[in-house]
C-alpha cells in the first residue's frame, strides 16, 4: 500500500523582501497509513510552512509531494481545493468554526463542496453521526459562541472527519485549551488513530507530542530529529487519574 505522505527534497522559498527566505530547505519524509506523527520546532523552524504544503494550502518551490499516491506539487488551485475537500481534515488551534452557524451545519460544510453532492437528509445524518462520534451529539443545534473551547474543538474534529479523509492535520489543536480539555482532545485523536486514521499534529509542547507515536523536530527548515516515542502517554489513562471535572 502506498504511503499517505511522501516528500522528496522539498523546498519552499519566499521571494518577499530583499533577501529570499528559505523556509523549508530540503525535507524528505515518508508517513505511512495509521501513523500518528507530532511535528515540533520553534517558530521560524519551517514547521508551519511544511504544514501548509502538506495541507495543500500552498505549493512547494521545488521537490515532490505525493499525497495518497497523487503527485500534488504541481496541481492547479481548483484541484488542490478538491484534494483538501476529499483527502484532508483540518483541525486548527483557534477552531475556525463559522460563527452564528450551528454545530451540525459547521460539520456539514465540507459536504457542501463535494463534487458529488449528497442529499440534504444524508448530509444531516452523517453530520449528526460525526458529532456523536466525538461525544457532542447533544449540542448539534448550538452555535460556537454557546460552546466551550473543548466543545468547539470537538465540533471542528467532527467537521474534519466528515468526508472520510486519509489524513488529519492538526495545527496546535490544544493551544487554546486548558490541560484537562487538552487531554480529552488528545484522547479523541488517539482513539481515531486506533481506528486507523493517519494524524499529523503540529505542537510545541513536548507533553502533547508524547501522545503521538512518532516525533519529528524541525529546525532552520530541515528535519533535525525523527524518532519513535518511547514512553507514549495514554490520554484515557491520564483522565482516569485526574480528579473529576469541577473537582474537589
Amino acid at each position: 500500500m502506498a504511503p499517505i505522505i511522501e516528500l522528496e527534497d522539498l523546498h519552499k522559498t519566499y521571494e518577499s523582501g530583499e533577501e529570499p527566505v528559505h523556509a523549508v530547505r530540503g525535507v524528505s519524509l515518508t508517513i505511512s497509513r495509521g501513523e500518528f506523527v507530532a511535528v515540533m520546532g520553534t517558530s521560524g523552524s519551517g514547521k508551519s510552512t511544511l504544514m501548509n504544503i502538506l495541507g495543500c494550502l500552498d505549493r512547494p518551490t521545488s521537490g515532490g509531494y505525493r499525497l495518497d499516491g497523487i503527485q500534488v506539487s504541481t496541481l492547479p488551485r481548483d484541484q488542490l481545493s478538491d484534494l483538501r475537500n476529499r483527502k484532508i481534515g483540518f483541525v486548527f488551534q483557534n477552531f475556525n468554526l463559522l460563527s452564528r452557524t450551528s454545530a451540525v451545519e459547521n460539520v456539514e460544510l465540507p459536504m457542501l463542496y463535494r463534487r458529488t453532492p449528497l442529499s440534504a437528509a444524508e448530509q444531516r445524518r452523517k453530520a449528526l453521526q460525526s458529532l456523536e462520534m466525538v461525544g457532542i451529539g447533544k449540542r448539534a443545534g448550538h452555535t460556537p459562541n454557546q460552546l466551550s473551547g473543548g466543545q468547539q474543538q470537538r465540533v471542528a474534529i467532527a467537521r474534519s472527519l466528515i468526508n472520510d479523509p486519509v489524513l488529519l492535520l492538526a495545527d496546535e489543536p490544544t493551544g487554546n485549551l486548558d490541560s484537562r480539555t487538552s487531554i480529552e482532545i488528545l484522547g479523541i485523536f488517539q482513539r481515531l488513530n486506533d481506528e486507523g486514521i493517519t494524524i499529523l499534529m503540529v505542537t510545541h509542547e513536548p507533553e502533547v507530542a508524547n501522545h503521538a507515536k512518532r516525533i519529528i523536530v524541525m529546525r532552520d527548515g530541515r528535519i533535525r530529529t525523527d524518532n519513535l516515542v518511547a514512553n507514549r502517554l495514554n490520554a484515557a489513562a491520564e483522565l482516569g487519574r485526574l480528579p473529576a471535572e469541577g473537582g474537589a
Binding site: 488551485r77 481545493s81 476529499r86 475556525n96 468554526l97 460544510l109 463542496y113 463535494r114 468526508n163
Partner: peptide, 16 residues
C-alpha cells in the same frame, strides 16, 4: 475574510 479562509481550507473552490 476568515470565513472565506475556512471555506477555502475545507475544500471550496475559488468559483464556489
Amino acid at each position: 475574510t476568515r470565513e472565506i479562509g475556512i471555506r477555502l481550507a475545507i475544500g471550496a473552490r475559488g468559483s464556489d
